[in-house]
Design a protein around this nucleic acid. Structure first.
Lengths: 223, 223
DNA sequence: GTTATAATATGAGAAATCTCATATTTCTAC
DNA sequence: GTAGAAATATGAGATTTCTCATATTATAAC
């Protein structure tokens, strides 16, 4: 990790203005952190000293269970906060946050700013909306994971991530994200190929019967 | 549902003061709603017109999936908000909220108060903490449900709900909550009895080997 | 470049969990 | 208090998903 200074710092602060997120002027106190691909922004169990705001790049939230299984809880993208749980709750058990690409974050030190942030309407309103999205999203994932077999959840994931009808996510990542074994994921992908829904092309899969995949994924929707 | 008036209304407003939750005086606008056991405070898919604050009683959050399965997402207790998702997001798909006991809620109409609430520091701070708890809680449930078999999750649930080492929750509710079939739940309970962890007493179960149950439940903890 | 590490791939058997069928008991509404 | 609905209970067989073993590629580090 590198803390950017001077010109580089100024560049990012100008390119991604955040004044609208706060009622007060915080620019002076914002650090700009740059992480290489694969670096950990937060190590599991080690609470950070900063509230981060991701401006460029992508990251993943991981938690490790006692039985050795690892869950990929969610992806983090531009304009997402990191460390907001630790801001709100001292003693919170921090999840691990790992970048997937080179990533730039704004970092606001808790030390001087926690109280001011927690008393700022603009910030809190924005944060509340983000937290409610997060809670809703996790609730949906939870109930869907219990109500539907992998077939449906994978179909949904394929549609969400396919680029131009070509699905090419890493199997290992997908296992952690959907919470199934590598073996089973491959098994269901093979089934999709057998049924003619997908066609394997090297390490990627071409969607060959989109409506069939959409029907499986559609089962997750309610209402 | 009954909207309480005059003496009854005044009684609850006095018994459960909420002035500390808001920066402005909202008492005049608060309605006091009384629900019988089993009534729906919010029907699934039908967004409410009020932000509720539960002051007496208990309720459950349900969602129904297309395949007919029903998930009990969580329990709602005293001092929890209801309808806060709808406050933050117009167009949110409302989950069903059903009372388990006679329940009293304060009800604040969105119509006149949405904007004021969303501009109030005290309210937003309190709400943010509640939402972050909710998000964290759902994340944990989600990842645990994928990482551990029912054995461990049930052990945890038994410890959380047992009263004086006696577990007597309704099986049907527990199935919806833990997301497993009735058949399987009974199967694992029977296993616990076989192993001497529980002893069946009528329709309840006495914890006869607490440390065994605690060990199973302890697997869920991380860190 | 080479070597270690990570990712892909597949088989076989076992465990977890589900569906369906069916019976009995307990609640609840009238 | 009685009928209908909800909850409990159990068996048998089918699916879903996991574990483990083992091979082959691809990627990253020196």
């Amino acid at each position: 990790m590198k803390i950017l200074q001077k010109k580089k710092r100024a560049h990012y602060l100008q390119a991604y203005p955040v004044a609208h997120l706060f009622s007060f002027d915080i620019e002076e106190s914002i650090q700009v952190h740059e992480y290489d691909r694969g670096e950990w922004i937060i190590k599991e169990g080690q609470p950070p000293d900063y509230l981060f705001y991701l401006i460029e790049g992508k990251a993943k939230i991981y938690i490790t269970h006692q039985n050795g299984k690892v869950s990929l809880l969610n992806f983090i993208n531009e304009a997402d906060y990191i460390g907001e749980m630790e801001l709100l709750h001292e003693g919170y058990y921090s999840k691990g946050i790992q970048t997937t690409t080179k990533t730039i974050c704004f970092a606001i030190p808790f030390r001087n700013w926690r109280e001011k942030l927690l008393a700022d309407v603009k910030f809190l309103r924005h944060l509340s909306i983000q937290l409610s999205d997060k809670a809703t999203h996790m609730s949906m994932k939870y109930s869907q994971s219990l109500a539907f077999p992998l077939e449906n959840r994978l179909a949904d994931f394929i549609l969400q991530t396919a680029d131009n009808d070509l699905y090419k996510e890493k199997h290992v990542t997908v296992c952690d994200f959907l919470g199934v074994s590598y073996r089973h994921l491959l098994h269901v992908l093979a089934q999709f190929c057998d049924k003619g829904f997908l066609k394997k092309e090297g390490h990627a899969y071409k969607i060959s019967d989109k409506s069939a995949i959409e029907e499986l994924a559609g089962m997750l929707r309610n209402g």
